[in-house]
């Protein structure tokens, strides 16, 4: 079973809210100093699931990402967790592509990689949350897709997939090759082992440029984007919380209940 996982490296979403800053003029999110970027949360679940499938069914896992040189760190982490190969897609003309542009670059890279049974993406990226790269990639490659995957069982060349719904799950059967977008319910990602980290640190990561893949450059980059960002700012919340205090927490609790009653909230 050969699996390709598409990951995105993002700014750590768990930084304290006060460290999150936007440059409204440039319409950019500023990266805080001394905070290492991370693999986008659902992509880490995708990596874990690919490794778990490989442990049972064998095969090879290739990780790909479109991004800057610094994304090598995240690719190395995937290798350290147990993936076999990692490819960085990096070229000036890839920059500022939207989800559809990224999907086109990934599609071209995957055509070059060749054989695969499953492509995995995250259901949503932690930063810009376009919610569309994975499904657009499926469309670009003409593959069936299952979104928001919570469980997977392999049966020959078919997969039994559980997909999240608002009020439960839905079970569908899909033939490989196919594309899956992964949700966090599926697993808890492992930490890389020390041995894995050592091995990954010795590995050379290939970098593919636009000339290494077959891509129409007019369909990628900011000029091809179908949406234009016109404004970016941080929401303001007027914190005017009234703290209820008393001799003891029990008394404060009673006071709170009374207050909610007075306000006719309950």
């Amino acid at each position: 079973m050969n699996i390709i996982v598409c990951i995105k490296q993002v700014q750590d979403p768990d930084i304290p809210p006060r460290d999150f800053k936007v440059d409204e003029e440039k319409m950019e999110v500023l990266s805080p100093a001394n905070v290492s970027p991370v693999i986008s949360t659902f992509d880490e679940n995708a990596i874990e699931e690919a490794i778990a499938l490989k442990e049972v069914h064998g095969g090879k896992i290739t990780v790909v990402t479109v991004g800057s040189e610094s994304c090598k760190d995240s690719l190395k982490k995937c290798l350290a967790m147990g993936c076999d190969d990692a490819i960085l897609l990096n070229d000036d003309c890839f920059e500022d592509s939207d989800a559809f542009g990224i999907a086109r670059i990934l599609a071209a890279a995957i055509e070059k990689i060749g054989e695969f049974d499953i492509i995995m993406c995250g259901r949503l990226s932690s930063d810009w949350s376009f919610g569309s790269t994975g499904l657009a990639l499926a469309e670009a490659l003409g593959l069936p897709s299952v979104g928001q995957l919570q469980k997977i069982t392999v049966e020959g060349d078919e997969l039994i997939c559980e997909r999240g719904l608002e009020d439960g799950v839905e079970v569908v059967k899909v033939k490989t090759p196919c594309l899956l977008t992964v949700s966090n319910e599926i697993n808890n990602p492992r930490l890389p082992s020390v041995k894995g980290i050592l091995m990954a640190s010795r590995k050379q990561l290939p970098i593919w440029k636009s000339t290494d893949i077959e891509i129409d450059e007019s369909k990628i980059g900011s000029s091809a984007n179908t949406l234009e960002l016109t404004k970016l700012y941080q929401p303001v919340f007027t914190g005017n919380c009234e703290f209820i205090e008393d001799e003891s927490l029990e008394e404060a609790a009673k006071k709170l209940a009374l207050r909610l009653r007075e306000d006719k909230i309950i």
Binding site: P13, D127, L229, K231
Partner: peptide
């Protein structure tokens, strides 16, 4: 809303 709600974006279709 983007970045998990930490930022609000305004976008306009170009197509």
């Amino acid at each position: 809303p983007v970045w998990g709600g930490s930022a609000i974006s305004h976008v306009k279709s170009k197509t």
